[in-house]
């Protein structure tokens, strides 16, 4: 295994972390602010989209996924794939049920 020799030797900058933090706090403010506006059914979609953007920032920057091996990124897709498909299948029951 060639890769075994690599150590994680990416030094990460302080500046980018502070920027990411600023973005995260701004998004938190945004999500709290738009919660006051009634988008109807869309509210949950807006809230989830903002949460996904925030998680993406934490994953790629704070958790260093950006500089990590491809394998790790593939792992994330496995987990997400399972969650999304399972949720869809679960709702194939609950969206159409008559109980």
């Amino acid at each position: 295994m060639e890769e075994a020799k690599e150590h994680s030797k990416h030094a990460h900058g302080y500046g980018i972390y502070v920027l990411v933090w600023l973005a995260l706090v701004t998004l938190t403010g945004l999500t709290a602010a738009v919660a006051g506006i009634n988008f109807g059914k869309l509210s949950i979609v807006v809230a989830i989209i903002i949460a996904v953007i925030k998680s993406y920032l934490v994953l790629t920057e704070f958790m260093h996924l950006k500089t990590e091996q491809r394998t790790f990124k593939a792992f994330i897709f496995v987990a997400l794939f399972f969650i999304i498909i399972s949720l869809a299948l679960l709702f194939s029951d609950y969206s159409f049920y008559v109980r």
Binding site: L89, S92, D93, Y94, S95, F96, Y97
Partner: peptide
């Protein structure tokens, strides 16, 4: 169990 017909078909 009385799941929705859609779910029964898909599964």
């Amino acid at each position: 169990t009385g799941m929705s017909d859609t779910a029964e078909f898909v599964f």
